[in-house]
Design a binder for these strands. Structure first.
Lengths: 279, 279
DNA sequence: GTGCAGCGATACCCGGGCGGTATCGATCGG
DNA sequence: CCGATCGATACCGCCCGGGTATCGCTGCAC
């Protein structure tokens, strides 16, 4: 099994159309058909059921597609990381979501810069659901994730710290003066529906609240008395004057972890991780 | 970058000798030299420093070696899993260490067998340090691991349960009657040195205690008054009459987790995991 | 210092495989 | 029943991967 064959198979399995897949791969259709047939022969497995009108994945094909994606991603990562390691000036890409506790991040970067032989750290601002992919395909070396929202599937990680969550309310709201509230109290406010974040696939979950993309948007809406939200404490510091943050007693605690691909051998990444866990 | 090239590179990087590597790959040396040179040219990176007397890895080469091992492992896994998925009779390989809580395992297997469409579960008994590798290269689909001894690096996992640890002592020992002890008390017994388990690489850590390989050996030694050990509660149930288990207050708790490779798409594995978490 | 042994690189050759074009055969729609 | 669509097959040319022979360098023995 060669990488080229996996790339071919992935294209066909995703397009479910040999012609389209060949176009995507910038090659003619016959050699593609042959390559897939050969792959099937070598594996001794039928990957695709074809009629002259349609192509469908077999169960084995679905398994191989999932494995192929992960392998292709790993190969891209290997190329990127190898090239990176050959640079004289080591660089380290740290993937963070916009909204990651600014204080922690600044402290981490400062502490790391003080290390002997510290690499240049490039911050890669991204959406939450991209982080794992970036780590897996080598576009990032390290990421800060928030459990339980993000998953550390296939990654190594170390816990940095755990914090509670707060409800963000208009300063004038009657709950805003409370020293603490419960999830049920906040979600039971019909005049302030819970804002909705995009899901992993970019779509929004159903609900009455407004759809938001970032904290600025969100705070604007809350200040206008259009919504509320429950977010980690650290994201609710330094609020605008017209907003109030109230600790939510029974919201699940949020854990910030530093995560990296398990086979990572970058000295710079190891250093950053060591510094992070000692903060 | 092709898989063949990675296999070639890994062989050379491990042997640090083109001739030996070629022999291992069952090919002649010149095409191997050329393949590596081509790989370096395509990456634009020097992977190996060669003189006519020695071959050494560059930093970039070390990175690629680590990535290559993980990719080759993933490819082997992809082939195994694809072939497996094509079998009409689904099988599931569960990797467990000898010594894994028998009660939990039996309950899990019983509960899973009752599932509709349950696959045949093959138990793969192995050493602790093999489990991750088996999962990564596709020889196993699911494993039971024990934190903090085993690592879930690069795996998905769910916590099954957490237990304390007990010290195993000869029944006649003066600590055997205690309702609880501390780590310091047990490790401060010069007449009963702590038994040593093999490390990840098969070697034993230094220390005064006897080297043991399995529980039977170990219990024999303890009964003879030659050693003691601290192990998870569940491994210390149903002891021989001449042994006693005493809870160790300050030993770190042991968590049993069920772990699987993150890109796993096996329905049977998902079922088993669901059953396990509901036990 | 000289000759030899060990090792990686180079030169050259051959065959298989990969990719291309042309075409077939099956299937569905009108 | 005919044409459009789509995957498979036939056939061809060339590149590349692998083989053998040999070179060039280097460390070591004497």
């Amino acid at each position: 099994m060669e990488i080229r064959e996996l790339r071919y198979f992935a294209a066909v399995a995703e397009e479910l159309h040999f012609g389209k897949a060949a176009q995507r791969l910038e090659m003619a259709q016959p050699p593609l058909s042959r390559a897939i047939a050969r792959l099937e022969r070598q594996l001794g497995v039928t990957l695709l059921e074809r009629t002259s009108r349609s192509v469908t994945l077999t169960e084995a094909g679905a398994v191989l597609l999932s494995e192929a994606r992960s392998i292709l991603s790993a190969v891209a990562a290997a190329e990127r990381r190898t090239r990176q390691a050959a640079q004289s000036r080591p660089r380290l890409v740290l993937a963070v979501k916009s909204g990651t506790a600014g204080g922690l991040l600044a402290k981490l970067l400062d502490a790391y810069r003080a290390e002997p032989g510290a690499a240049t750290v490039d911050l890669l601002l991204c959406e939450a659901h991209q982080q794992q992919e970036l780590l897996h395909n080598g576009q990032a070396d390290v990421a800060l994730l928030h459990l339980p929202f993000d998953s550390t599937a296939g990654l190594d990680s170390e816990i940095l710290y755990t914090e509670g969550q707060v409800a963000i309310l208009p300063a004038s709201h009657h709950l805003a003066g409370r020293s603490q509230v419960r999830v049920a109290e906040v979600s039971a406010l019909p005049e302030l529906p819970m804002a909705r974040w995009p899901d992993h696939d970019g779509s929004y979950p159903a609900g009455p609240g407004p759809e938001v993309k970032n904290l600025t948007q969100l705070f604007q809406l809350i200040a206008l008395g259009q919504a509320t939200v429950i977010i980690p404490e650290s994201a609710g510091t330094d609020l605008r004057r017209d907003l109030a943050a109230v600790p939510v007693l029974d919201a699940p605690p949020v854990t910030t972890v530093i995560a990296w691909p398990p086979q990572s051998r970058l000295r710079a990444a190891a250093d950053l991780i060591r510094v992070a866990t000692r903060l």
